[in-house]
């Protein structure tokens, strides 16, 4: 159903650090769920428009007007780590 490599790839994409046992359990569970979900493939949906919203609205826009900002302190209040006026994050290594 879903391979171990796929599970590892998806865990990386999802930024989830899973250990070996977790990856294996995830593979089993996702396989079971996907097997069930695969029943959808049996339905012929050729030419059927997708529904992305239950109530089909269009052209919802707002006026280009300003609303009050958060104060700097409010903006940073929940920061797990901050440096002065900034949020701080550990060193960035590209993947």
């Amino acid at each position: 159903m879903i391979s171990r490599q796929d599970v590892e790839h998806v865990a990386r994409l999802s930024r989830l650090a899973l250990n070996d046992a977790e990856l294996e359990r995830m593979r089993e569970q996702l396989s079971g769920i996907l097997a069930y979900i695969d029943k959808l493939r049996a339905l012929d949906t050729a030419g059927v428009e997708p529904t992305s919203h239950a109530v089909p609205l269009v052209n919802v826009m707002r006026d280009d007007a300003n609303r009050p900002c958060l104060s700097q302190d409010e903006a940073l209040a929940n920061a797990p780590d901050r440096s002065g006026e900034f949020f701080r994050v550990p060193r960035i290594i590209e993947d």
């Binding site: 998806v10 865990a11 999802s14 989830l16 996702l30 059927v48 428009e49 997708p50 529904t51």
Partner: peptide
């Protein structure tokens, strides 16, 4: 975690149309 994994998989390259696309069409049905 399970649902994040499942959802990421369903949206990832090569699977979008078979999963998310198909599901949205079934929604129409």
């Amino acid at each position: 975690k399970r649902r994040v994994m499942l959802g990421t998989y369903a949206l990832s390259t090569g699977y979008y149309d078979a999963y998310y696309g198909q599901a949205q069409r079934v929604r129409t049905l």
